[in-house]
Design a protein around this nucleic acid. Structure first.
Lengths: 333, 333
DNA sequence: CTGAAAGCGCTTACAG
DNA sequence: CTGAAAGCGCTTACAG
């Protein structure tokens, strides 16, 4: 299958390449009807398909954006990514997803790789350890949007959950149901990521507002492999928590595994709320109360922000966007 | 940030563009040490990043493959896709994922789009309705691999589950546990997709082998929205099935929702097995017996098949690859 | 050991 | 209304 180029079409239609190109780009302003027709016939006869790579080189735009996620295992990530793809697709943009696996080194590699591929912009769930690189892109006014996390001192706009509110929603629900001994677990991340920090802080503030003393041993931040042993310890304290807030979906799953393994009952032995509305929450037994993030809206907002930056070329307001969580009351508390 | 090109590097290092290009491509065969050093210094000083679009145009290879999935909502799809990405990443290939949403029209659009973008090959979970297009790619010896489904008469190699064995595993487990009234549900697809057909056939054969009569009303294939009402009908037959095989993850989830909604108990009121080892199977209550597909192996195989086709340029054996399912015995039967 | 030149397949001022 | 020419940033025979 030898590739047919714009030159072949031009020859076939007996016009110049320029004219074919005009036609292909729908700039028919002054184009004669017969010319149009001849070109169209030639295109069909030869089965011409444009070469977007060549176009991209000339136009310096690939109509493609890159998305670098910190960790694809989170349900949040998958859903946000899907929303980003949807929005981009509507604007005829393609999307290349890369998973940095919480590794700043991989993240750096992907940023360079994607820029070498001339993607028009980047949505990053930042690991946080590549400040210089972020700053350099900002200085070069290369379009970038952060997702889920923000970085103090780096003026890249970010799309975020209103984390303190998310935690408050959960904790106050526990309190309303009469719980006072409330613990919280998150996955530890060496790099100080926004959600973890804000959620732990929100946890403390909400307890304070409700005049509940804060027990530091009720707050756990560890790697997901250590969650089981930490839970074991936590629940064997003299006064163990009677309710647990799982800081994200992975923590929730580990908690449920632990509970099942130990034959505990929810909510009688342990009440549970998870941040992130996991797929099985509604039909689990018992169904799980969660704090849902508006993942679709967030992805959409991020994509739109980026596409605006790309298309307008002008500076968009660089402030972050906060999104509202929703409490999904079910049977686990 | 004006872009720095190979010409700038050449000027800075006081050599020709050709030499810089050689250096960049590690063809140092005859390159002087000082030349190398000068180029390297220039690259660093200018912060040169290659433009892969330009390279791709010349080399006629983008080091990118396209993956068109029929329906991204299946867990199977997500996992296979991730494996594909892993393998490609190791070979320095990028991946563009597109979701055809079970729509042959969208599928066609994506095939054309991706080829226009000059991807080096395609992995397709085919909807089945674009035979002409598939055949044209085959005729043009454009590298394509099918996943999950195969098409009779189209000689494109496919990576598949050993579907009849998967069903046999499940049905025989039911039988061993003493069940005789065994139903099966799959999502209907107008386009006759391999897994559905093979699974229903396998179901019938296995019953036959066990000398269990086949009740046609026990076999349901409908859109996922109609599953609830179909289940309702099915379980209100005079002699309703006592065990159900869910043909994929989405069917399983609908079944579990129904069961929970009606307050039924698994396995006492209804025994359940699902094909696809869903994330929550192990910690659901009761834990769910499933037939696991080796998703990672399958994705890996598909990606390797395709990369071989791309890199060797020679014809690879075009026969399909079948993969072995595994029964994960848990508490739902 | 290195450089000049052609070319990948497009687009885009500009001239007529 | 249409075409000739230059150029996007690379790579690659080929000459020396």
């Amino acid at each position: 299958m030898k590739t047919v180029t714009i030159g072949d079409v031009a020859a076939q239609a007996e016009v110049s390449k320029s004219t074919v190109s005009q036609y292909l780009n729908e700039r028919y302003d002054y184009m004669g009807e017969k010319t149009k027709q001849r070109i169209q016939d030639a295109v069909e006869k030869l089965g011409y398909q444009p070469n977007i790579v060549a176009r991209s080189l000339k136009q310096k735009s690939t109509k493609t954006i890159g998305v670098i996620v910190a960790n694809i295992l989170h349900n949040f990530t998958t859903e946000v990514t899907r929303a980003i793809e949807d929005v981009c697709h509507e604007s005829d943009f393609h999307t290349i997803i890369c998973n940095a696996d919480d590794d700043p080194f991989k993240e750096k590699h992907y940023i360079e790789m994607l820029r070498a591929k001339q993607v028009d912009g980047l949505i990053i769930f930042p690991t946080g350890d590549n400040r210089d690189l972020y700053q350099k892109m900002l200085d070069g006014s290369y379009p970038v949007v952060f997702m889920d996390r923000e970085l103090e001192g780096v003026e890249i706009p970010s799309v975020l959950l209103h984390n303190s509110k998310a935690v408050a929603l959960a904790i106050e629900h526990f309190v309303e149901q009469g719980y006072r001994r409330i613990g919280m677990m998150t996955t530890s991340l060496k790099h100080h990521t926004t959600p973890r920090i804000e959620r732990v802080e929100g946890y403390k503030n909400t307890l304070k507002n409700n005049e509940i003393p804060i027990h530091d041993e009720y707050i756990i931040s560890v790697d997901s492999q250590s969650l089981q042993t930490e839970l074991e310890e936590l629940l064997h304290l003299e006064k163990p928590p009677e309710a647990m807030l799982a800081g994200n979906d992975l923590v929730l799953i580990e908690t449920l595994k632990y509970v099942k393994h130990k034959g505990l009952r929810i909510p009688d032995d342990l009440a549970v709320i998870g941040i992130d509305d996991v797929s099985f929450a509604s039909f689990y037994t018992p169904s799980i109360t969660t704090v849902a993030q508006p993942t679709f809206k967030m992805g959409k907002a991020g994509a739109e922000l980026l596409l605006n930056k790309i298309q307008m070329k002008k500076e968009i307001r660089n402030s972050s966007l906060r999104f509202e969580p929703t409490l999904m009351v079910r049977d686990s508390v």
